[in-house]
Nucleic acid binder design. Structure first.
Lengths: 222, 222
DNA sequence: CGCGCACTCCGCCTCGCAGCCGATTTCCGC
DNA sequence: GCGGAAATCGGCTGCGAGGCGGAGTGCGCG
């Protein structure tokens, strides 16, 4: 881990060790696309693929890759949870998030879980490999769109855990009374949380609130 | 166009013509993945790629592919609109929808626009090529999940154009009065449409309606 | 220790929403 | 032409939602 300055170049030295990459995505088509690009680089090679978070953790333990490319929304186990478990196994693990979504909540949660980079699937192949090299060199990398969303986030007021619970139940279509029953609090308290919620999200109705919360990745449909 | 029975096999005939494929997706990574798989088949080859609907139509006119693999949600021009324009240029054009989403509204609109197949991005490479060959042979192909959703749809009551407009404005967070102003109708009429809407969607509140409509692909967030 | 914040609860009041009764016009298809 | 579906409009009722105020607890942090 001493000379991890990223330039493990394929000059002419005996056996130029290629950085080992784990690719995690539930779409086989994208995995092959990524694998193909990565394997075409002299200093990189894909050592394993996984199609959900569970498999990702298992593959990480078995292959101990130098870097893991990880999608977020997957069946069985979410990407964020997988990142958390991988970092628990090895706190030095380097994980690059490669996803379609750029909601600020997703970005923040991924970075909190220990991701070193966050890039979107619409990037070019060259950007992908340069991002991987950045991370291998010990640096972090944020897609411009992700960085912008993250910057926006700091100006926004955060929701409390209780407010989040209320928000999610509300998005499920429950009435104030039903939310109260669900959380074992009075309907009046639900209304108080909602009032704060509306204030923080800058809206005046529950329908608008669902809209804004969906955009920011605070609630998830389906 | 006479002997288009799909078996343009690479047996031993002079120059076995490979079926020409156009790949349309806004994710470069997935395009390369698909292109790689397609080009590994002896009877298929990718002749062009496009990253949005606009480019797709232009590429179709220039290259006249035998089959087009098309994503639905793209910037500039949606996939459904691109399918419609391509079919206007050549009513014989064969388009395979390759997307992440399986909402019944998406499937129905794509097929109405003239798509011959609907598959999801989580399929295996082998299924992708077999689907392409099916379509080249003049047949249609529906992913099991898509077929199920489509079957479900026929039992569901369809919404009228006006009801859809009201639904979308409602999902945007507008009040009944605001919706009325927007559509130049009285608030009373908005309420009538909403009552029908709730009846058809099987819900009792606007928040639930947004939820159900989102699932079915009737409204789109972001 | 005091301050702020999160969480809880309470009353009152207004207004929008949803359910109910009704109605007319237009337009399409059989 | 007649039935039916779509779109338009009216009023009435009751409840839920959202804005107004205040207020008590516990917890962490400076």
């Amino acid at each position: 881990m001493a000379s991890a300055d990223g330039r493990i170049e394929a000059t002419a030295d005996a056996a130029p060790r290629r950085a080992r990459v784990l690719v995690v995505d539930d779409h086989a088509l994208l995995r092959t696309g990524v694998a193909n690009i990565v394997n075409h680089e002299q200093d990189l090679e894909v050592v394993a693929e996984a199609s959900d978070g569970q498999e990702a953790v298992e593959a990480f333990e078995r292959y101990r890759p130098d870097v893991t490319l990880m999608d977020l929304r997957m069946p069985v186990m979410e990407g964020v949870e997988a990142i958390r478990r991988i970092r628990a196994i090895d706190p030095q693990a380097r994980v690059v998030v490669l996803t379609t979504y750029d909601a600020d909540e997703d970005i923040a949660r991924a970075l909190e879980a220990g991701a070193k980079a966050y890039i979107l699937k619409d990037i070019a192949a060259s950007e992908l490999v340069s991002c991987v090299r950045q991370v291998l060199a010990g640096r972090t990398y944020l897609a411009p769109a992700a960085a912008a969303k993250l910057a926006e986030r700091v100006t926004q007021v955060q929701l409390t855990p209780r407010e989040l619970s209320v928000l999610r139940l509300m998005a499920d279509g429950l009435s104030n009374k039903e939310i109260g029953v669900e959380l074992s609090i009075s309907e009046r308290t639900v209304k108080t949380h909602l009032a704060h919620l509306f204030e923080k999200l800058g809206v005046t109705s529950r329908t608008e609130a669902v809209r804004v919360a969906t955009r920011r990745g605070l609630v998830r449909f389906e």
